[in-house]
Simulated assay, not measured.
Amino acid sequence: MSGDVVVTVRLVRSFEHRNFKLVVFHGLNLDQTVQDFIQFVRDGENPRSLPPPFRKYSYGMYVCVSTNELVMSLDDDDKLILQNGQTLRAAGVVNETEVAFFRREDYDLYKANPKSAW
Rank of each mutant, 00 (worst) to 15 (best):
M1S: 15
M1W: 14
S2W: 11
S2M: 04
G3I: 09
V5S: 10
V6S: 02
V6I: 12
T8L: 05
V9N: 03
V9K: 01
R10T: 08
V12I: 15
R13N: 14
R13I: 02
R13M: 08
E16Q: 03
E16M: 06
H17E: 15
R18N: 02
K21G: 04
H26G: 00
L28N: 07
N29I: 05
N29F: 03
L30D: 04
D31T: 06
D31A: 05
Q32D: 04
T33A: 06
Q35D: 13
I38Q: 11
I38D: 02
R42H: 14
D43R: 14
G44C: 00
N46T: 07
N46M: 07
N46S: 11
R48S: 15
S49F: 04
P51A: 06
P53V: 08
P53T: 10
F54R: 09
R55W: 00
R55L: 10
Y57F: 13
Y57C: 11
S58C: 10
G60C: 03
G60Y: 06
M61R: 14
C64H: 14
V65T: 12
N68V: 13
N68R: 09
V71Y: 07
M72Q: 13
M72E: 15
M72K: 00
S73P: 01
S73I: 06
S73M: 04
L74Q: 01
D75W: 07
D78F: 13
L82G: 04
Q83S: 13
N84A: 14
G85M: 07
R89M: 02
A91H: 05
A91K: 01
A91S: 12
G92C: 08
V93R: 04
V94K: 11
T97I: 01
T97M: 01
E98L: 09
A100E: 03
R103I: 09
R104V: 02
E105P: 11
Y107A: 00
L109D: 15
L109G: 04
K111I: 02
K111M: 06
K111D: 04
K111E: 02
A112S: 11
N113S: 10
N113D: 09
P114R: 08
K115Y: 12
K115Q: 12
A117S: 14
A117G: 04
A117M: 13
